[in-house]
């Protein structure tokens, strides 16, 4: 039984605690059942493991409802909104600051301020575009991951 639990932990990487706690219990029950099975019918360890994996998958799908993911997605959407806005402002700030300091140092006011303000704006917009592209790629990836999962549940 203990080995089954540790196998489960090692094999499936990070298991959420809420999936783990009930699993530990069912592994115990199931493990004892299987022991009787094995002595009776001589089942191999492989099929035992197989069976356990399918049961693990079933339990996992039962224990990971859709709602938290939705909440997380909405939360991160707000996070990325803040991220994009601050990226734009930070570009202007940094560009302006570099230009201002260069002007102060070289006494060429306002040449570098103007140049670096423009460059800073460009950098800010470029950062926004890059973030947006990254978000889009992630959204597509998670959508692609979600599709077969929902199909499997229905079918």
């Amino acid at each position: 039984m203990v080995r089954a639990v540790s196998d489960l932990r090692r094999g499936s990487g990070m298991l959420s605690y809420w999936a783990c706690a009930p699993m530990a219990k069912s592994a115990k029950d199931g493990g004892e059942d299987r022991k009787h099975d094995r002595t009776g019918k001589g089942r191999s360890r492989e099929s035992w493991q197989d069976d356990f994996d399918t049961r693990l998958d079933r339990a996992r799908s039962r224990w990971s409802p859709e709602t938290p993911q939705d909440g997380k997605a909405r939360g991160t959407a707000m996070g990325t909104a803040f991220r994009i806005a601050s990226e734009l402002i930070a570009g202007l700030l940094v560009g302006g600051f570099i230009g201002w300091q260069l002007d102060k140092w070289l006494e060429t006011s306002p040449v570098f301020l103007l140049i670096f303000f423009m460059l800073g704006a460009a950098a800010g917009i470029w950062n926004v575009i890059r973030t947006a592209l990254q978000m889009q790629a992630e959204a597509q990836k998670s959508a692609a991951k979600k599709e077969p999962g929902s199909k499997g549940e229905n079918g």
Partner: peptide
């Protein structure tokens, strides 16, 4: 000539945007 300064500035915006976002919120 234009893109390298933009990339450098965009690299230096990282600590600014990181800190301003948290503090401003």
């Amino acid at each position: 000539v234009i893109l390298v300064p933009i990339e450098v500035i965009s690299y230096f915006t990282r600590p600014v945007s990181l800190s301003v976002r948290l503090f401003a919120n």
